[in-house]
């Protein structure tokens, strides 16, 4: 462990806002990329299921 206390870990020697800001931003971008395809697929299935019901599909 490079830090003496949890407080020192959060403070990052005065660079806390920069470091944690970057990691927070990264988490947001990764979460967006992980969640977006699932949302798009659910929307497609919903719309396509409605189309198939209208046309009396399989």
């Amino acid at each position: 462990m490079n830090f003496d206390s949890f407080g020192a870990f959060l403070a990052m020697g005065g660079h806390g806002p920069y470091v944690w800001g970057c990691y927070g931003l990264t988490l947001l971008v990764l979460l967006y990329n992980l969640l977006a395809p699932g949302r798009r697929q659910r929307r497609f299935v919903r719309e396509q299921a409605a189309r198939q019901r209208r046309s009396g599909g399989p």
Partner: peptide, 16 residues
């Protein structure tokens, strides 16, 4: 974030 040593010039900002 927690285990690597700080950079001798940049301090902890290098963890970015």
């Amino acid at each position: 974030l927690a285990l690597a040593p700080a950079d001798y010039l940049q301090g902890n900002s290098f963890r970015i």
